[in-house]
Every structure is written in C-alpha cells, then in structure tokens.
Design a protein around this nucleic acid. Sequence first.
DNA 1: TCTGCAAATGCAACAATGTTGCATTTGATG
DNA 2: CATCAAATGCAACATTGTTGCATTTGCAGA
Lengths: 148, 148
Amino acid sequence: MTGKPKISPSSEQIRAAGVKVTRQRVRVLDALLAARQPLCHGELESQLGGAEAGSRRVIDRVTLYRVLDSLVACGLAMRAVDPRGVFRFSATGAPRQHAGHVHFRCTDCGGVFCLKAEPPPPPALPRGFRLAQVEFDVRGTCAQCGAR
Amino acid sequence: MTGKPKISPSSEQIRAAGVKVTRQRVRVLDALLAARQPLCHGELESQLGGAEAGSRRVIDRVTLYRVLDSLVACGLAMRAVDPRGVFRFSATGAPRQHAGHVHFRCTDCGGVFCLKAEPPPPPALPRGFRLAQVEFDVRGTCAQCGAR
DNA sequence: TCTGCAAATGCAACAATGTTGCATTTGATG
DNA sequence: CATCAAATGCAACATTGTTGCATTTGCAGA
Ligand SMILES: [Mn+2]
Ligand SMILES: [Mn+2]
Ligand SMILES: [Zn+2]
Ligand SMILES: [Zn+2]
C-alpha cells in the first residue's frame, strides 16, 4: 500500500491554476473552502494543528504565510484586512469569479456577499502614480444579522 | 524664568476635550494636525524623535500608543487600518477634512495620498441589508516608490 | 504657593503578525 | 529512476500592539 493521493476538490483547482499541487496547499485551500467566513492566520494555524504541543507540527507558520500568498497570487484566495488590522483569507472558488462586482461585508458575522453593482471606474491619478487595484468595499450588517 | 507653557493650537483642543493637557498629547496632536496624510505609529515615532540613537528618547513607544488611544477616545483623532493592516491616525481638528475625496494607498510604503476625485455613490443593497460605511480604495505604487 | 492624588508616563516584558535567508525535501517532468 | 526548480521547515529578525508596575506630573483645592 503506497497510499493513494487523496483527490480533494481543491486539488483540481490548484492544478488548474497552474501551480504545483502540494500537501500544504491542498490542506490550506481545503480549510478555506470549508470555512464559513474569512480566516486569519492564527485561526488557520490552530485549525490545521500548526501549534500543537506534544504532537508534530503539521504545517510551519512561515509556510502557511507563503501558501496563502501563493493562493492569493494565483487567484484561488482573497486577502483583506479586518477592522483590527489583521489579514483574513477566503477561497474565491473559481478564479476571477469575484472580479466584476461589488462586495458587501457584514461587520457582525464577517460574511461577504456579492452585489449586482459594477465596481466604479478608477479615478485619475497624479503623475508617476501606478494603479494596481481598486476596491469598493461596502460595509454594514447583513439581513440575517440585522434581524437579530 | 520658570519657562512659559507653550500655547499651541492643540493645547486648547485638548483642554476643551476635557482631558489633561500634557507635553506628549500636545506633541502628538501637533504632529497629526501638521500632517498632510494619516500617519502610522512608526512614522509618528520617528517624526517625534522617538527612536534616536545617542540622544534621549522624546516619547516612549508605549506612551505614543496610549496618547493616540486617548486622542481617539476623546474625538480629537481618527484611527483606520491601511491595506497593509497597520493603524493610521489623523486629527479630526478640521472636521470632515478627508470625507469628500478618494484616497490612494501605496502598497509599497503604505502612504496615503488625497486625490481630487469624489467618492462614488453607494450601490443598491438587497432587502434587509443596512449600510454603515463605503470605502473606495485605490491602490498601487506612488511616484516616489515607482521611481526606484 | 504648597500639597495630594489620580492620571499620565517610562520601562520591561510579552504576544501576535509578518519577513528574510538558507539548507533540505518534494512534486512534476522526461 | 534521475533531475531540478519549486516548495518546505527552521532560525532569526522586524514591526506592531498589549499589559503590569513603579515613578512622575498635571491640576485642583487648601
Ligand atoms: Mn463576489
Ligand atoms: Mn498588524
Ligand atoms: Zn452578517
Ligand atoms: Zn509609496
């Protein structure tokens, strides 16, 4: 028995994104896909058993950062700062899926909702400035949280 | 000569806010009022001579945090996270000074620059959703960072 | 002007987050 | 299987932010 390579839904996404399919990338993307809200580094680390005392580390802290960076770079994950200044990561499902519309972020539950509105056009920039990304963030409370 | 207490514009604001007028609070609020963009902790520290080698520290790092906290608490300053996840502080002295235009954030140096463009109008929301805040983030590299 | 005291400060220690360098391991390819 | 660039683990470091505690100080009242 050599142990069949596990086929998880994330494996295919990673392969399709054109990067190596590794244990750690699969693990992390699996966690992001299963999560109901964007996860910060610490949450991912403890969920993956990164800091267990006694048992072996499953993933290195730095590797987790680099895996997250790579997932963001190839479009499989999104990164955003939360109001406390920490990065939170979420799976984007199919790459570029969320490029053409505005998102609403619930400040209560942390949920992200897709709106139908198109992102506004970028403004004119001073000389020498180079535009990399525009983000139109709409925040408030979602219907479910507002009902409580 | 006992040294007259310096009267700076910020002294009055601090007194009016109902908290003690201290050297450090005056120093920090002066810096915030003079700044053309929101400043992060490190920028304030080096501007105030907090980490000079050889000469005496002018303000302690922790005191700076606590002074900023107190200024925010009494409404004299505002705190927001930049795209890199660090807090940036600005004086609220001139009220709503940065409300009417879009800001550009340099992903290299973290700097914030005021643009002339007006913020886009908020999009329509699904039923039950309540809008609290819209943020139009324009990111990229500033002229100085792009030149290198 | 002097005194008393709560508030503010400085300093040490700690925690969390994020980065860099380098040696070793591993996934993919032929 | 052999190969090698990419990925990983680990140590070390930087920055940001917090907490506890002893000392200093602003300021109100005597
Ligand atoms: Mn979306
Ligand atoms: Mn941070
Ligand atoms: Zn919600
Ligand atoms: Zn810059």
